[in-house]
Structure formats: C-alpha cells, structure tokens
C-alpha cells in the first residue's frame, strides 16, 4: 500500500487514511481534544506523514509505521493544544469538568497508550480480513483454540472436523494473520 502511496494515488491515500484514522482519532480524544480538534490533529498528522513519506523520510529500517505515526500524532496533539488555547474540553459542563490543560501527555505514558491502541486496531483489522478470507469453520477452529484455548479435541467434535485439521486451521490462520499484520505495518515497503 505504501508503495502506491508514494505515487500519491488518491485511492491508496484514502485507503491509508481510512485504515489509520481510527486509532489516531481515539488517541487524540483520549488526550482531551474536542471532536473538531481531534479531526484536525489527525488531518495534520496524516498530511505530515504524506509529506514525509513523499520526501523519503520513512525508512523501514528506522522503525515501524506505528512508531512514526505516533511521533506525528504526539506532535500534532501538542500543537492543537497550544493553538487551541481555551478551546472546550470534551464533556465540558459543570464544575467538575476536565479543563483543557489538565491532561498534558507525558511522552512515555502516551507512547504506552498509543502502542496499546495501535496493537488493538491492527489485530482487529487483521482479524476482520482473516475472517473474510477463510471458511467460517476454519476461522472458528482458530478462534476457539487461540482465543478461548478450547482443547483441539473438543473443537474437532464441536465443528465436525478431525483434530489434525483443527491444528492445521489454527497454524494456517496464524501464518496468514502474521502476513496481514506485516502488511498493516507497511513492512513490505522496499522488501
């Protein structure tokens, strides 16, 4: 996806934005930006990303896409806060409201929050794709064994499969998931 983005095709850009907007928006909101400011912060970060990407500043060896986007988002949130002045806090109202300056992000803590959100979004997105690619019974076998840790024998009985087929479904699903995860992070760039 990133290679096509390099050529600045709108389609690739829109897909890129659509995929990464959610974690970025959630991160901005979590740090007290209003809806409008969050949108602006994400927009600014995405534009900065695009400019940086086109200028060749994103290099695979320097880290994951998520790390780079974090740096841009962190900067963008700080900038929104600075520019936003007395803009309203989310959920404003009453004496107990959160003031705009009450939750300045500590970078290390913010990074932890970002990584957690990023991972969740990445895995959710990849699981959705995986689900659409494999048969319902194979997905179910993978889910029951991996997420629920149901013994393969029970899963086999439940789904009418052989036990070895359950193990096979699980390992293939995980392999595919890893490929999707790599794709999500854009590590295919330049590979």
């Amino acid at each position: 996806m990133l290679e096509r983005l390099m050529e600045s095709q709108d389609e690739a850009w829109e897909r890129f934005s659509a995929r990464f907007r959610a974690p970025m928006l959630g991160f901005a909101r979590r740090y007290g930006l209003t809806e409008a400011q969050s949108e602006d912060a994400v927009q600014d970060a995405l534009i900065a990303f695009l400019e940086g990407y086109r200028a060749g500043r994103y290099e695979r060896g320097k880290g994951r896409l998520g790390s780079w986007l974090f740096a841009l988002m962190y900067q963008s949130i700080r900038s929104q806060r600075r520019d936003g002045g007395r803009a309203p806090a989310q959920g404003a109202g009453g004496d107990g409201r959160t003031t705009f300056f009450s939750a300045l992000p500590d970078e290390r803590e913010a990074r932890g929050v970002w990584d957690e959100d990023w991972e969740r979004c990445a895995i959710d997105s990849c699981l959705s794709r995986l689900r659409s690619e494999v048969s319902p019974s194979h997905y179910r076998a993978f889910e029951l064994t991996t997420v629920r840790e149901v013994p393969a024998m029970e899963v086999a009985e439940q789904l009418g499969m052989s036990r070895d087929a359950v193990y096979q479904a699980r390992s293939r699903a995980l392999q595919r998931l890893r490929a999707l995860r790599d794709e999500y992070e854009g590590t295919e760039v330049g590979a």
């Binding site: 086999a156 052989s162 036990r163 087929a165 359950v166 193990y167 096979q168 699980r170 390992s171 293939r172």
Partner: peptide, 18 residues
C-alpha cells in the same frame, strides 16, 4: 509430519483419537 501432527506436537497434545 503433517501440519496437524506438528500442531499437536507443538501443543503437547498427547491424546489419541483413534
């Protein structure tokens, strides 16, 4: 070993089905 057998080995699944 098949993928299933390797999975079984990896999981340490000692049960036999038949």
């Amino acid at each position: 070993a098949s993928e299933g057998e390797l999975g079984r080995l990896h999981a340490g699944d000692v049960s036999l089905t038949g």
